[in-house]
Structure formats: structure tokens, C-alpha cells
């Protein structure tokens, strides 16, 4: 086994293991912390694929910002194992069925892929910042700009919802 395979296996075990821990742990704060570990493992995979920019942005945006907000909300709402509502059996069964169906689809789709063509370990430069920038601002400039407008509208929407009571009170 080459060293890359060993690292890949370690990272994969880490990712899948902590994802399972995230789902199964009763305490929401622990779930959030396990999810952060998942993001780190995924960033490790990105580095193996020579996409350093993607790896570090994944850490900055997901692990550094979004998960802090998650943790924030969970801590403020003071959720814990005792107050966590227990879902009833039927809902649990439906959840397992739909999740299993999704997994079946993903597994069948992945098994058709020619791995040799898909994975280029530590080669290719599509994840490097220069190539990524060129792609985003030359080939895909329109979708990129439209998605940024979408973000802007989402931001304004969030502000409006947050300020709703204040505006109504003023009337």
C-alpha cells in the first residue's frame, strides 16, 4: 500500500466514523462537534486531490463560520439529551426507508463510474486558486454572478425576517 492509500483510508475512516457519531450522539453539541471533524476529514481529501484552495475554504467557511453559528444556536437554545423530543416509531421507520433508498441510488451511481478516469491523486491543477479563478470569471461568469445575486437576496431576506417585529411595531 502506498502512503497515499494509507492516508486516504485513515481520512475515510475518520469521515465516515465521525459522520456516524454525529448522527447517533444524543447530545446536539456533540453532534455539531463531530460534524466539524467530518469537515476536517473532507478537507484532507481535498488536499490529497491537490485542491488546497478548496480545502482551506472548506475549513474557513464550514468549520470556521457556519459550524460556529450552529454551535451558537444549539448552546443558546440549551438543547440537551433530556429535553430532546423522541420521534415516534412510524417517523423513524420512514426516515430509515428514505435514507436507505438514497444510499442505494448513490451506491449504484458510484459503482458505474470508471475510477481510473475520475480520480487523479495529487495531479491536475483544477483545484488551484489561479485555475479556479480563471474558470469562475471567464467560463462560468454568468452563473457565478447570478448565484451571488441569489446570496444577496437571501441576506436581505434574513434581515427583513429579523426586523419584522420592529417594523410592525413602528406602524
Amino acid at each position: 500500500m502506498s502512503i497515499i492509500q494509507i492516508i486516504f483510508l485513515l481520512l475515510s475512516v475518520m469521515a465516515v466514523g465521525s459522520a456516524l457519531m454525529m448522527i447517533t450522539s444524543k447530545n446536539p453539541v456533540n453532534s455539531v462537534l463531530w460534524l466539524i471533524v467530518v469537515f476536517f476529514a473532507i478537507s484532507g481529501h481535498y488536499i490529497l486531490l491537490n485542491a488546497q484552495f478548496l480545502a482551506i475554504v472548506n475549513i474557513i467557511v464550514y468549520a470556521g463560520a457556519i459550524m460556529v453559528l450552529f454551535l451558537f444556536v444549539v448552546m443558546l437554545m440549551n438543547l440537551n439529551a433530556e429535553t430532546e423530543p423522541v420521534k415516534n416509531r412510524r417517523l423513524q421507520l420512514i426516515g430509515i426507508t428514505s435514507g436507505g433508498a438514497l444510499m442505494l441510488i448513490i451506491v449504484s451511481a458510484i459503482s458505474k463510474i470508471d475510477v481510473e478516469q475520475l480520480v487523479q491523486i495529487n495531479a491536475g491543477d483544477s483545484g488551484l486558486i489561479k485555475v479556479l479563478g480563471m474558470n469562475l470569471f471567464k467560463n462560468y461568469v454568468l452563473p457565478f454572478e447570478i448565484s451571488s445575486v441569489l446570496f444577496l437576496s437571501a441576506m436581505i431576506g434574513a434581515v427583513v425576517i429579523g426586523k419584522k417585529e420592529e417594523i410592525e411595531n413602528k406602524k
Binding site: Q52, F53, I56, I59, A63, G64, V68
Partner: peptide
């Protein structure tokens, strides 16, 4: 080649 972003990433984890 992403030096400054690495710094930024670690800083954002500091919290």
C-alpha cells in the same frame, strides 16, 4: 501557496 488563507483558517478555528 495559500499561506495567508491558512492563517485565516486557523484564526477562524480559534473560537
Amino acid at each position: 501557496n495559500i499561506g495567508i488563507l491558512y492563517v485565516f483558517g486557523v484564526v477562524s478555528l480559534g473560537v
